[in-house]
Write a protein that binds this DNA or RNA. Structure first.
Length: 595
RNA sequence: GGUUCCGUAGCUCAGCUGGAUAGAGCAACAGCCUUCUAAGCUGUGGGUCCCGCGUUCGAAUCGCGGCGGAAUCACCA
């Protein structure tokens, strides 16, 4: 419509003022709610051609359009704004075509599909997932759905940080204090068990450091010379050397962790197409580094550590191989990136990683570029903000970390309590209820996190923030469930609604408002894909649900005596439930048929 | 100090490719269940869009400069 309007306006300006307008001067926008009309032309840019007041110019263009374009049923001019009214018949026809095709996303498809890797989750295998990982997983997964919906070939990848000093810490503490404890013997989820020993390590290490400081060492010396840390380092060296005993222990404990992660991923509803392990990519990283050293792209210190000098790029010196020859984080990421390019020849790799690593990715790209990899420009750091608690930041040392599994369980429990209190779901079997509580609890959690702009730090209040009113997942789910309920009722009454019999005259103002909202959907999705922001979709779903709820209250959908109006409203409800569930699907949120 | 990000109602957040009187929800108060699900709807109150300057017919939105907050600048990952 906007495109046709622009063409007509250009025509009008040509006829009235004898001037060829460039199309960027024609600004069409949706008319604000409190004014009469559907689309608004901003006439200010045309004043220099009309040589007239804004009001008069608007009048002239409005009159021309009304006479020459039958979709325009009227207009009004306020200050420099020409508000054009589109006839309800036009809207009804537009909606009829939409309802028949049901192809809401057609216009959001990109013309140049790309191969895009989305890396998300990226857990360390020394402790369970927490709230921060939840944000990461939800963003990554939703990004996958949004990008593939607009036509890209998207590969979900996960890089598991399964090697490094942190793993050795858990292993060491388990060796010392574990007494052979296993997930089976303890009944603990594997990732939680391993996490327990990581905490144990930190406790012992801390007390050793304190003792050494009391013995007269400064903090740095104490940290480096504490026996726990020394042993962990030795273990890492043994691991890199392939020591059989250490590797066996490592394999066993990692397998526990993976079983635990799989369960959490399954509960969250996320998955991966390709999982990388740093234990498999770090060697390739080392090779790349050594090769670059030979080409004098990097330099070596007397202690034989290898560095990149990035001062020319405005960055620092960056260590790439330790003096003892072991790899650091950056080494692995270099290897992983190169490995992936070999495998997929991606156009882009999107790293869903917290903003505390902004610097890391700047450096990563700079080093790869310097090494001559042109694809380094396709590496995108999708940087998201931290999740904070009302009391402040989550700190594992202070035990203020919100565990992912606990949180998911709590959300479902809350859903159960609220539902029962409201007296919903009488007459459902236990399994059916459980499934509905699961959808609602998870929907609340996912929506709450995804509705916030990913860039921003966000506050998560586990006890209060998740209520089920207002701008929440359950509100949107509720709206959907209501619509489904209307249709169950319609079936009972043997009403059938047909999109091809939508009548031109049955559209009222509220219906047109809703149709306008539906029209936005493809734009929203392509924006979300461009901006990498599921939040755009989330807030749109809320807006649609809120508008629909008002409609639901103001108008009787089933009981209208005029069958044309009833038909129109039924189809409208159906289309809206389609769009809402599609939108929520993009966020990875399931919709219950009843709640 | 360098770099990146953020600053909108008491709180949590939208709005930002410049457009009219800046929006929701929560919290507070007042109403609405014999009619398709009240997890809902309606109404009232609540604002120096951090500050200043600039660009413009027009700035929450763009630019520059401040102020405030966060992250990061490890032989941790």
């Amino acid at each position: 419509m906007e495109i046709i309007l622009k063409e007509k306006i250009r025509e009008a300006v040509k006829a009235l003022f004898n001037n060829d307008l460039s199309s960027d001067l024609i600004q069409i926008q949706e008319t604000r709610k409190d004014f009469k009309g559907d689309f608004t032309l901003v006439v200010f840019p045309m004043l220099r051609f009309s040589k007239n007041t804004p009001e008069k110019t608007g009048e002239l263009i409005g009159n021309y359009l009304k006479e020459n374009f039958k979709a325009i049923s009227g207009f009004n001019v306020i200050k420099g704004f020409l508000n054009l009214e589109i006839s309800n018949a036009w809207w009804a026809e537009y909606f009829r075509n939409l309802a028949l095709s049901r192809n809401y996303l057609e216009s959001s498809t990109v013309s140049n599909p790309q191969t895009i890797l989305v890396e998300y989750s990226s857990p360390n295998t020394n402790k369970p997932l927490h709230l921060g990982h939840i944000r990461n997983n939800l963003l990554g997964y939703s990004l996958f759905r949004i990008l593939s919906t607009v036509g890209h070939r998207v590969i979900k990848t996960n890089i598991v940080n399964d090697r490094g000093i942190h793993i050795c810490k858990s292993m060491l503490a388990w060796q010392k204090y574990g007494n052979g404890e296993t997930p089976e013997s303890s009944g603990m989820k594997g990732d939680h068990l391993v996490g327990k020993y990581y905490v144990r390590f930190e406790q012992e290490y801390k007390s050793q450091v304190e003792n050494l400081i009391r013995g007269g060492l400064n903090e740095n010396e104490a940290r480096n010379s504490a026996p726990m840390m020394k042993e962990a380092r030795e273990m890492l060296l043994k691991w890199e050397a392939g020591d059989r005993e250490v590797v066996e222990l490592w394999k066993m404990m990692n397998s526990w962790v993976y079983a635990g992660f799989d369960e959490t991923y399954r509960k969250l509803g996320v998955d991966f197409d390709r999982i990388y392990y740093e234990s498999e990519t770090y060697k390739f990283g080392k090779e790349i580094v050594i090769e670059a050293l030979k080409k004098n792209i990097l330099y070596q210190n007397p202690d034989s550590s290898i560095w990149a000098d990035l001062s020319a790029e405005g960055l620092d010196q960056k260590l790439l191989l330790r003096s003892d020859g072991t790899a650091v984080y950056m080494t692995q990421d270099l290897g992983t990136a190169a490995d992936r390019y070999r495998e997929y020849h991606f156009d882009k790799t999107i790293y869903v990683v917290g903003n505390e690593q902004n610097y890391h990715f700047q450096v990563l790209r700079a080093i790869l570029k310097r090494m001559g990899y042109s694809w380094a420009d396709g590496l995108i750091h999708f940087s998201y903000g931290m999740v904070e608690l009302p009391e402040g930041k989550m700190k594992s040392r202070e035990g203020t970390v919100v565990d992912a599994d606990d949180l998911i369980d709590e959300m479902q429990e809350t859903a159960r309590e609220v539902s029962l209190e409201l007296g919903k779901l009488a007459g459902f079997s236990g399994d059916e209820k459980q499934e509905i509580f699961r959808k609602i609890g998870l929907g609340a959690l996912k929506y709450f996190i995804l509705k916030v702009d990913p860039k921003k730090n966000m506050t998560f209040n586990p006890s209060e923030s998740i209520d089920f009113n207002g701008n929440t997942g359950p509100f949107i789910q509720y709206t959907y469930a209501r619509i489904r309920s209307v249709f169950r009722k319609a079936e009972q009454l043997k009403l059938n609604a047909r999109a091809d019999s939508i009548s031109d005259s049955a559209a009222g103002q509220k219906e047109v408002d809703l149709i306008k909202l539906i029209r936005k959907f493809p734009v929203i999705v392509s924006d979300a894909a461009k901006e990498h922001s599921p939040a755009i979709v989330a807030n749109y779903c809320y807006e649609l649900a809120r508008e629909y709820n008002q409609f639901y209250h103001d108008f009787s959908i089933l009981n209208d005596e005029n069958s044309e109006v009833r038909n129109f409203r039924l189809i409208l409800s159906d289309v809206i439930s389609d769009v809402i569930s599609k939108g929520m699907w993009l966020l990875g949120i399931e919709m219950p048929e009843r709640m």
